[in-house]
Amino acid sequence: MSNKKVLFQKKEFEGWKTLNDTVMGGSSSAYCENTNSGLLLKGNIIEKAGGFVSCRSSIYKPSLDINEYQSFELKIDGQGRTFKFAVACEDDILGLTEFIPGGLRWIKSFPTKKFGTTKIEIPFNSLNPSVRANKVRFPFKFKPSKIKRLQLLHSKFGDNGLLNDGFKSGPIKILIKSISVF
C-alpha cells in the first residue's frame, strides 16, 4: 500500500456541482463554491418532499484508479451534522447498474463535530451498496480501480433507508477541506 494521496483540497475541487432534492420534487436549495479553504456547500434544506443537499464531482473519464489504496480520508467542517459519502463505480455487467433509478452508489454515513474540523477515515470495505438510501442485497463488488464519481450528501436518510439521527433542516454551511486516499 502506498502513502496518502490527496485527491482534492483547497481550490482543487474544480468540476464539483450541486445536486439537491429538487431532482425528486423537493425544494431544498444549496450550491457548491470552490474557495481557498476547500469546497463550500451552502444553502437551505427543506425536509418536506425531499430533504437532501449534496455536492458531487464530475464524472471521471477515464475512471479514477485508487486500487493501490484501502481507505478514503475526509476533512470537513460539518456543523455536527451526519453526512453520507457516496462513490459511484463502473460495473462489469455492461453498465447495467446505471439503469437502476438513482444509480448504484457505495455509501458510508459519518457524524461530524459541531465545531472545528472532523477527520474521518472510510475504509473501502466499510462502503455499502445502495440505491436511493436503500441497501442493495445483490452481491455487487466495490471496484476501487473504476471510480466514476464522488459525492457528499446531507440527507434525512442515513444508511439502509433509516432516518438520519444527525439530520437538520434549515440553513447549512459546511466546508469540505480535503478528500484523500491512503
Rank of each mutant, 00 (worst) to 15 (best):
F167D: 00
S155Y: 01
G166V: 09
K141R: 12
F157K: 14
K156I: 03
L153P: 01
H154A: 02
A133Q: 06
F142H: 09
L163H: 10
L162V: 11
K173S: 15
N164I: 10
L150G: 01
K146D: 10
F157I: 03
D159T: 06
P139A: 01
G158P: 05
N160H: 12
F138V: 14
F138L: 15
D165I: 09
P171A: 10
N160W: 07
K135I: 11
F157G: 00
R137K: 14
L150Y: 15
K173P: 01
P139C: 05
P171R: 13
S145L: 03
K173H: 08
F138H: 13
G166F: 04
L150R: 03
N160A: 12
I172L: 14
I147G: 05
K141Y: 10
F140G: 05
F157Q: 05
S169D: 12
N160C: 08
L153K: 04
P171M: 07
L153T: 04
F140Q: 08
D159H: 08
S155V: 08
L150W: 13
I147E: 09
P171H: 04
K141V: 10
F142W: 08
H154Q: 05
G166Q: 10
K143A: 11
S155G: 07
R149S: 15
P144H: 11
K135M: 09
L150E: 01
F157Y: 15
K173C: 11
P139R: 00
G170W: 08
G170E: 02
K168P: 00
K143W: 06
L153G: 00
R149P: 03
G161E: 04
V136P: 09
N134C: 09
P171G: 08
I172D: 03
K156A: 00
V136S: 06
S145G: 09
K146F: 04
L150Q: 01
N160T: 13
N160G: 08
K146Q: 12
R149I: 08
G170T: 04
G166W: 10
G158C: 06
L152K: 07
N164R: 10
G166N: 11
N134H: 09
R137T: 10
